[in-house]
Design a protein around this nucleic acid. Structure first.
Lengths: 202, 202
DNA sequence: TCGTGATGTTGACAGTGTCAACGAGAGTGT
DNA sequence: ACACTCTCGTTGACACTGTCAACATCACGA
């Protein structure tokens, strides 16, 4: 039956991806090896190559999922915010950082070009672009504008601050200045973003 | 002779580090392997372990050098700036980004905790702290203040924006919106920093 | 003079990504 | 019915990795 066959095929592919996610979250990206993924998925060490050309192809899929989820994080936050650009900007920045802290390994994957070269994975690239467009339109900037247009400057400034703060927190460069528990750290980051994001858009 | 011995010892250590730097700059951090380093340095594959306990110890040394050089970048830039905090802040941010673009692999090393856990390398950590203190004092904030003091907020905001911008450019997330040549990209980043850094400190 | 420690070597081990060769089975055209 | 091809899966091999263990050399202090 074609049905059972195609279901089985999807099953293998899905179990490979699930094993990848589990490994990534357990031991970090360093412990995500093709052979261990295959072992976890219960197939031979070579089977994953029938679904993904190489390790990077798996990572690209995970990164693509990450951009989808980041998009959802931001859309939800924007929806809950009041109608002013300032409030939306603040909510969006907080959501960006919350996503990074809740999904550290995927976040790294999404923003490290030597791990996933988005140029070679148009699907994932499109999802990343969607996130950028969401940021721009939320700040009231028409994204169809010329890439070099100065109109994009505030978008880049806001994005840079949120991204820098997320990265520095993730990599432990802010010490424990932001508190010990996740909630405390999110709140502290939110205060920074909330206070300074406004200054960048007007 | 003790002299020749100690010189020879230093020679080996130096050649190991030089080989590491060369490899890092040629093929990225991924191609910096202990065995290839040893090969380049002209010693057996096990010799480096007499000088560094493991791969991370070499990377920590390189990262420490990186913080030294970042410090120099920023100090020079501050010295050339006019006397206002705004000008110094701008010059410092530009220097930060110039350093990142000119030394991409070292910059990554310095800010990725899974590559070098600074907690385990107090020497490198001290150099990193020096950079942070330089940023704080340049912005007129007394760094001996309580880590959780809100006085540090503008310091963190400025650092985050510069770091985020550097990271996003480095990882190619800003497309070619910033120009094709290195000079163009530096200039564009400088414009962003120059325009927005001021808004964060007053 | 005899350890002894620092410096260097070679050999081995399990682990990795990936190529090559092969097989079972389904689908298809004749 | 038969041969062909394609997909999916296997096993085996290769060179490479980090690192442990064992051994050689040789300067130096007791």
């Amino acid at each position: 039956m074609a049905a059972t066959k195609s279901i089985s095929r999807d099953d293998v592919r899905t179990s490979i991806l699930e094993a990848s996610i589990a490994l990534m979250n357990e031991g970090g990206l360093g412990s995500l090896s093709m052979r261990e993924v295959a072992r976890r998925a219960g197939v031979s060490h070579q089977a994953p190559y029938h679904y993904f050309t190489d390790r990077e192809a798996i990572l690209a899929e995970l990164a693509g999922d990450g951009f989808d989820r980041l998009y959802d994080y931001m859309v939800s936050a924007i929806g809950l915010a009041r109608n002013s650009i300032g409030d939306k900007n603040r909510a969006m920045g907080e959501a960006y950082i919350r996503f990074a802290l809740n999904n550290p390994e995927v976040f790294r994957l999404m923003f490290r070009c030597e791990m996933v070269d988005l140029m070679r994975y148009p699907e994932a690239k499109a999802k990343a672009d969607l996130c950028f467009q969401l940021v721009a339109t939320t700040l009231g900037v028409n994204v169809t504008v010329d890439k070099k247009s100065p109109e994009l400057a505030p978008v880049i400034a806001c994005w840079s601050m949120a991204h820098g703060l997320a990265t520095l927190m993730l990599e432990g460069k802010l010490g424990e200045a932001f508190g010990d528990t996740m909630d405390q750290r999110e709140a502290a980051a939110g205060r920074i973003i909330g206070y300074y994001a406004d200054r960048l858009v007007k």
